[in-house]
Design a protein around this nucleic acid. Structure first.
Lengths: 141, 141
DNA sequence: TCTAATCTTGACAAAATTAGTAGGGTATTA
DNA sequence: TAATACCCTACTAATTTTGTCAAGATTAGA
């Protein structure tokens, strides 16, 4: 599995914030309920996204979370990496030497996979996803 | 992480068998030592690959493991799936409904990722990898 | 035939990671 | 000033990964 619930939950929440971009903050509970994500777990994820600079928060009554940048300036890759660390296909790519000798060709396949994953997540913004969503919604009506 | 050691170990071992294709069986110990894979762990992996029909075994003295098909007829995807199950980017693709409503756009990104991964692993055979390895070896000399 | 080499099988255990809980603290604002 | 909502840290439960172990079956060769 490439992504754990961390990345999935976090991406869903970010997308929800993107839908509401410019319309004031969304509180934790509303997001956690809408997507059935445990409140305190989601809190931890959003906290990470805040530290990474992708979302802002407003404390106190009427407070909540909001996107720190425009949806077009936040990529799926940014969100996923903030939550899951580098998205890698195989551990052997993390370590400089994967223990094997110079005939480690398997590494090449893993590199190919990784490149194609990164290519997708780095070239998809939250705005792109909103567009897609609107398109689907349109087709259905 | 997309792949655990299962997939990596298994692919390395399969590749080793591919190098030896047509030259008789390789025993467990030789593979496990060459790639520093725990013997009984590798055993389990090879057993799965056997059940999936990708390798054959010869029991008894002078026995060992060998590829059941030509390297050109075995893809990286076959090996990985036999060991890790379907290679999926996100659990939400496994379940028919990911719990979310019709606005689940995140799913679309995951699908894109998955397609590109499958595209790579299904179009790379063990023979391809041997060629690459030979090419690298050549360049180095 | 005996023996050592080799695969076979299934149960078990350790380690790591993921997923989530719990609870007190702090800032804000109606 | 009290309710709301984010902030932070520690802890726990569940799951998956990564092995270990032991008894057995099969075969080649002395």
């Amino acid at each position: 599995m490439l992504l754990s619930t961390k990345g999935r939950y976090g991406l869903k929440a970010s997308l929800e914030l993107a839908f509401f971009y410019g319309k004031g903050p969304l509180n934790l509970k509303s997001i956690s309920e809408k997507y059935s994500i445990p409140e305190s777990y989601l809190e931890q994820l959003l906290s990470k996204l805040k530290k990474s600079g992708y979302i802002d928060t407003i404390r106190g009554k009427q407070g909540g979370y909001l996107l720190a940048k425009e949806p077009k300036d936040i990529t799926v890759g940014m969100i996923l990496r903030a939550l899951e660390g580098d998205i890698t296909s195989s551990d052997c790519l993390k370590n400089d030497n994967c223990g094997a000798e110079n005939t480690c060709v398997t590494r090449l396949v893993f590199e190919d996979i990784e490149k194609s994953i990164n290519n997708i997540i780095d070239n998809t913004t939250l705005e792109d996803m909103i567009h897609k969503r609107n398109q689907i919604y349109k087709e259905a009506h």
